[in-house]
Write a protein that binds this DNA or RNA. Structure first.
Lengths: 151, 151
DNA sequence: CGCTAATCCTATTATTATGATAGGATTATT
DNA sequence: AATAATCCTATCATAATAATAGGATTAGCG
C-alpha cells in the first residue's frame, strides 16, 4: 500500500547481507539465489548498480562471485536502497529540483512529504550491514530453537 | 522509486485540505476536480473510504457535497493516508501478523522496515489539516507574489 | 588447451498495481 | 420536473514491477 519498498530494494539488502556474512570471500549469485529461491537473473540486474556504485566487487570465472567493496560497518542500508531504487521521494514534487513540473495539487502538503522522506532516510542511514549482523547474532544467542518469521 | 505515495493518498490529502479550507460548508467534488484538473470519478473512489471511516460527511442533491466530519485540527494526515491506502508497511512481512507468509529473505532486515514504518507514521500522525492551513497562511503572509512549486 | 563456473550485458515478456473511464442509480434542492 | 450532486459497480488503459531468455566475456582447473 503506501510507502512500499519494492523487491529490488528488499533483495538488494538481502544480497548485501549475505555478502557481509561471507566476510571477504566471494559469494556467487547462483548460491544466493538458489538458497533463497530467487531468480538469479533478477538478482544480477539488482547487483549491477551496486557494483557500478562501488559497493561490491565482482570477480568473474570459476570461484568468482561478489564481495563487499568496503567493511560491513561502512555500508548503510540507505546507500543500498537508494543505489538500486533511486532517491527517497514520497511524491514527485519533492524531487523536482531539476525537472520542475506542476504537481497535481500545487504542492499543498509538500512540507509533509519532505519530512517523511527525511525521516525514512534518517532511519535507513543509521543502520549498517554490520548492525544487522550483530543483531542476528544477539537474536540467536537470546532465543533457542526455530523462530517463525512473524513473531 | 522507493517508499512512494500513490496518487490516491496524495489526492486524498488534497481533497481533505480543500474541505478544511471550506470550513463547515459543503464542497462538491466537481468543483474540486475541475479546479485541479483531476478526474471526478477517481476522486469519488478515493473519498468513499474517507466517508466510510467517518472522516467526511457527504450530502446528496443540489447544493450538496462533502464536508469534514470533525474539526480540521482533529484530523491527521496519517489518518487520511492510511484510510485510503491501508497501513504503512514498507515490506510485506512487517504486516503479516494475520497472514503469515514466508518472506523471500526470511525477514533478515525486518527490524529496519519496522523502524521505517514507525518513522513514517510518526511524521504523518504529527501533522493535522489545521497545521497545513496555518502553514499556508504563514507562507502567504511572509512572501509576496507567486511562488513556483519547487523552490 | 578445453571445460566449466561465474560475471556481465541486452532485450523481451508476463504480471500486477495504478490510474482512470463509463454508466448508471439514488437523493435533495430549486 | 429538472438539475446537481452523491453513491455504486464494473471495466479498461497504462505504467511499473518482476522475471525470463539468450548470449558474451572472463577466469580457474584438469
Amino acid at each position: 500500500m503506501p510507502f512500499r519498498l519494492s523487491t529490488r530494494g528488499h533483495y538488494a539488502v538481502l544480497v548485501m547481507y549475505e555478502l557481509a556474512k561471507a566476510g571477504g570471500a566471494y559469494s556467487s549469485l547462483q548460491d544466493i539465489s538458489t538458497s533463497w529461491s530467487l531468480s538469479q537473473g533478477y538478482l544480477e540486474q539488482i547487483v549491477r548498480p551496486l557494483r557500478e556504485a562501488g559497493l561490491v566487487e565482482g570477480k568473474r570465472g570459476f570461484g568468482g562471485g561478489y564481495a563487499l567493496a568496503r567493511d560491513a560497518s561502512e555500508i548503510t542500508v540507505g546507500e543500498i536502497v537508494r543505489t538500486v531504487e533511486g532517491p527517497v521521494v514520497p511524491v514527485q514534487c519533492v524531487a523536482d529540483d531539476l525537472h520542475p513540473e506542476r504537481c497535481p495539487d500545487d504542492c499543498r502538503a509538500k512540507s509533509v512529504w519532505q519530512k517523511v522522506g527525511e525521516a525514512i532516510d534518517n532511519v535507513l542511514d543509521s543502520i549498517t550491514l554490520g548492525d544487522l549482523i550483530r543483531e542476528e547474532n544477539q537474536d540467536a544467542a537470546s532465543s533457542k530453537g526455530d523462530r517463525s518469521c512473524d513473531e
